[in-house]
Structure formats: structure tokens, C-alpha cells
């Protein structure tokens, strides 16, 4: 993978330790490049995903949140990743109500062996977020800063 994008977005990735977190590790071992925009937070399972933590990430400056769990059917806790998907859908509804594009939160599934797929997903998601532009909350921050400076 040689393609890189020029972006400055901040993306928090909540990754299950059994799959996506290991896959990210593998991507590193394989020397696959993925955008530096991604900051990984390890979860014991995506079933642990907390709506409030996702909101806090966005509130405190993240442009997007990526949630990555095991392939459906392969959750170490049976249904954690299925629950995470429904929770992500609920968060998308919440974001719409708040006024933030729901595309800024997405669920991904992969196994620990899928280092390449992790890098690809990270790139693809970063491209999506770059296209969307910075979080409207961040641009709001900027406007406020400018207003203060004036």
C-alpha cells in the first residue's frame, strides 16, 4: 500500500482486542501504512462500547469515531459485536438529532489476521472523513476563536 492521503483529521478507533486491535498490530508488523489520523483505543470487546464515550470523543475534538469488532459470528463473547452494531446505529440517530453527520461514526468487522483489511478500512474511513471535512464542532471552535481574536 503506497497510497497516502494528505489529511489532518482526528479519528478515534475503538478496537476489540481480539480482532481489530490485533489486526492493527499486524498491519504494523507487515509495514502497511495507514493514515496517522487514527488513534486507537482498545476495548475488551466492542460490546463494551459506551455511547457516552463516543459522544465525549466527538465533543472533545474528534472528527469521527470508528468502531471495529470481530467478524459477525466470531465474537469471543458471542454477541458483543452484534450489540455494538445496534449501538452504533443508535449513536448515528443521536448524532443526527444533535446536528452532526451520522457518517462520522461507523462499525467495521474483521479478524485478527486481517491486517491488510484494517489498513484499507482505516484509509477508506479517513478518506470519507477528509471529504466530509472537519467536525462541525471543530469548525465551530475555530469560528469562536476567530471571533475572540477580532
Amino acid at each position: 500500500m503506497t497510497k497516502t492521503i494528505n489529511s489532518h483529521s482526528q479519528i478515534v478507533a475503538f478496537c476489540c482486542r481480539y480482532c481489530a486491535y490485533a489486526a492493527a498490530d499486524l498491519a504494523g508488523v507487515l509495514r502497511l501504512r495507514y493514515p496517522p489520523d487514527i488513534r486507537i483505543v482498545q476495548l475488551p470487546c466492542t460490546g463494551r462500547l459506551d455511547t457516552l464515550e463516543v459522544l465525549h470523543a466527538l465533543e472533545h475534538g474528534a472528527d469521527a469515531v470508528m468502531v471495529a469488532g470481530c467478524l459477525e459470528g466470531d465474537c469471543h463473547f458471542q454477541r458483543g459485536n452484534i450489540v455494538a452494531r445496534t449501538r452504533v446505529n443508535r449513536i448515528k440517530e443521536l448524532l443526527t438529532e444533535i446536528g452532526i453527520e451520522p457518517e462520522r461514526v461507523e462499525m467495521f468487522n474483521m479478524s485478527s489476521a486481517m491486517g491488510r483489511q484494517f489498513a484499507e478500512a482505516a484509509l477508506e474511513f479517513t478518506e470519507r472523513i477528509t471529504a466530509l471535512g472537519p467536525s462541525p464542532l471543530r469548525s465551530g471552535l475555530k469560528e469562536i476563536t476567530e471571533a475572540v481574536e477580532m
Binding site: D50, L52, E59
Partner: peptide, 19 residues
């Protein structure tokens, strides 16, 4: 407590977006 946190965060973000 959790829902209070979610609502408070949602309101902060939403009112900020409203300017």
C-alpha cells in the same frame, strides 16, 4: 447517570452547533 451524561453532552454539542 449515563443518560444524563449523554443528554448533557448532546445539548452542549447541539447548542454549540446552533451558534
Amino acid at each position: 447517570e449515563k443518560e444524563a451524561g449523554i443528554l448533557a453532552s448532546s445539548l452542549r454539542m447541539s447548542t454549540k452547533l446552533d451558534g
